[in-house]
Design a protein around this nucleic acid. Sequence first.
DNA 1: AGTCCTCTGTTGACATATCAACACCGCCCT
DNA 2: AGGGCGGTGTTGATATGTCAACAGAGGACT
Lengths: 146, 146
Amino acid sequence: MSTEDSSEATELWLLWKRAHETVRSAVVADMTAASGLSEAELSVLVCLYESGGVLRQNAIAADLGWDRTRLSHQLTRMEKRDYVTRDKVANGVEVALRPEGRRTIEAAGPSLDASTRRHLLDRLGPDDAAALKAIVERLLSSDSSR
Amino acid sequence: MSTEDSSEATELWLLWKRAHETVRSAVVADMTAASGLSEAELSVLVCLYESGGVLRQNAIAADLGWDRTRLSHQLTRMEKRDYVTRDKVANGVEVALRPEGRRTIEAAGPSLDASTRRHLLDRLGPDDAAALKAIVERLLSSDSSR
DNA sequence: AGTCCTCTGTTGACATATCAACACCGCCCT
DNA sequence: AGGGCGGTGTTGATATGTCAACAGAGGACT
């Protein structure tokens, strides 16, 4: 860095982005090696799995902070891979985890834990980890667009 | 959220990703409206601009945490839009900001400041902002892959 | 009934990201 | 010289994300 022209807000945003990108690429590389899942597939599968295996499409989008279009395309791809099914239901679409998807996400879980611990949790001390968690939770709860 | 199966590390990572995605989509929407720049173009232009307008391709990739391929494709697109030029130089390629790129990033700066302040800085208190900054800086400085 | 909303999801065109393979250059080594 | 080797960048195929336009269901209003 040299001229340092950004405002405080922009500077924080750029730093945050860079840190996020760094951790993300490391974790994604691990996950691709361990399970063959892409980041997007993993996000959707985790979301479904943690909610018991069935969710409205809309709920997934809200949960991940994705837009409708992106999720729609992603689910189309995941249907082809037998990870999920879609069923029309009153005023929406219900997405359900299929056995292949469940098997895959269950197999990927431990790798994900190890990877996130190595690239994120262990690099922060316990104090920073707790602080970061509190901060992102506050950020999410103050989000007007959800 | 319901069953809560993730480890502490995975849970923190998912929360962080979601918060990042939320802020990102809001900022990107603002920037697209204000300047027509995509997130990727903005990142590269900011990086170049803050370094005085000329950087080795490799340095940009390191600075942004991107991989070579991604940056190469991105620069190809940005050359077509007259934002930057590429020149072969001893052991690498030098990327330079062109007038069109400089003009665009200078015009976008204030919008970016306003947007990041609104969607990030103002949602954190001053304390949280300082804490987040310290955390990401520590994360970045402990990164072994750079 | 009809019309007008809003919410939800889809589609196709296009922008962007990723992966594997390749090309080039400078350096070290013998 | 000749032969590896690591660092740097490119290319094309493919996967993924974004945008604008559309489709359909249901609710509110007259």
